[in-house]
């Protein structure tokens, strides 16, 4: 049978009923004795030129026949469905699978660490149980000083305590690595604050530390302002205010424009238009000296912030206890998955 004869058969397809369609399919495309299959089988016997010509035309026709048969099959199926009232309702929900997700605090920590990674900071970690020396004294807390009051600690016996900040990792890092040092230090910290809406005896902190030749207060301001603009929004206003930490001098608190009221004043920012985001300062020379770093030559800056607090500010989460309760609805809501 010639190809053009076969092409004529195309016209029959749209009119065929289900049974006729099955016959046509076998007759034309059947793998054993279909007419088109027969033609394709003869191809190896032809000379190169003819083979190319016939082969191309035969394959094109094959595709056309297949498409026509497919379309007719679907039309017949639709007709059958309509007759029996069993149409597919495509608005019915799809088949779901369980989805998981990361804790919102983990996400915020990663996001913060990622921003600082772009600014050259790697991550460093240390133990959660620490010595008084690393947690306080090497950080220039004088013994028996009222500055210790803000750091009410859980003791484990002897001079072992649960770290009150991630700052002891500054000490561990400076004792083990020569400058330049650029690290961010995420981790859990502990203070003897009973649970309430904004306090938890356990909380997450991210500390940062940069020590090198020639680092100044200008670098501190620029680095932290850059962070704030990356994390919140490019036009976020920041301000720096004097503060006090034994391990930095000068010390500075950084505020960002309230993310909720854009500075107009609201309950979240106590009507000030600003939100306290982190504490910072130039590394105190005594800290460098305690770690065997030449404080005449090297300078540095450090800061600390609370990812839980930042998450609360950014997402409007009213109570820090929600982070620990592990209510599946809360975890799902903040898992980074689009909720239905």
């Amino acid at each position: 049978m010639r190809l053009d004869e076969l092409r004529e058969r195309l016209k029959e397809i749209p009119q065929a009923d289900a049974r006729r369609l099955q016959e046509l399919k076998t007759e034309l495309l059947g793998r054993r004795a279909g007419a088109l299959t027969e033609i394709l089988k003869t191809l190896p016997t032809l000379d190169a030129e003819t083979r190319k010509q016939v082969g191309g035309a035969a394959n094109a026709l094959k595709r056309e026949l297949e498409r026509a048969i497919d379309e007719r099959e679907q039309a017949l199926a639709r007709g059958k469905a309509a007759r029996t009232g069993q149409g597919i309702d495509l608005t019915m929900p799809g088949r779901p699978v369980w989805r998981g997700g990361l804790h919102i605090v983990t996400q915020v920590v990663s996001e913060i660490c990622d921003i600082f990674r772009e600014l050259g900071f790697t991550r460093a970690v240390g133990p959660e149980a620490e010595t008084e020396r690393n947690n306080f004294f090497a950080l220039n807390f004088p013994p028996d000083h009222p500055a210790l009051d803000a750091q009410d600690s859980f003791y484990l016996g002897g001079d072992a305590l649960l770290r009150t900040h991630t700052s002891p990792v500054q000490i561990r890092t400076l004792e083990h690595y020569p400058p330049p040092v650029r690290v961010v230090i995420p981790g859990a910290c502990y203070r003897r604050d009973p649970f309430d809406a904004s306090h938890s005896p356990v909380f997450e902190q991210i500390e940062g530390l940069a020590v090198d030749d020639g680092l100044t207060f200008v670098d501190l301001k620029a680095t932290l302002a850059t962070f704030a603009r990356r994390f919140f929004s490019p036009d976020t206003a920041v301000r720096f205010r004097p503060s006090y930490f034994p391990f930095t001098e000068p010390s500075a608190e950084m505020d960002v424009r309230c993310q909720l009221c854009a500075g107009a004043g609201c309950p979240a920012c106590k009507q000030t238009g600003w939100m306290e985001i982190l504490g910072s300062g130039m590394v105190h020379p005594a800290v460098l000296e305690n770690c065997g770093v030449d404080a005449e030559r090297y300078t540095g800056f450090a800061w600390g912030m609370g990812p839980q607090r930042i998450a609360m500010v950014r997402h409007g989460i009213p109570d820090i206890r929600l982070f620990f309760e592990s209510d599946m609805r809360f975890l799902e809501r903040f898992s980074g998955i689009d909720s239905r």
Partner: peptide
Amino acid sequence: FEARTLPL
């Protein structure tokens, strides 16, 4: 889902 429970 990731939980963060109290270490105490």
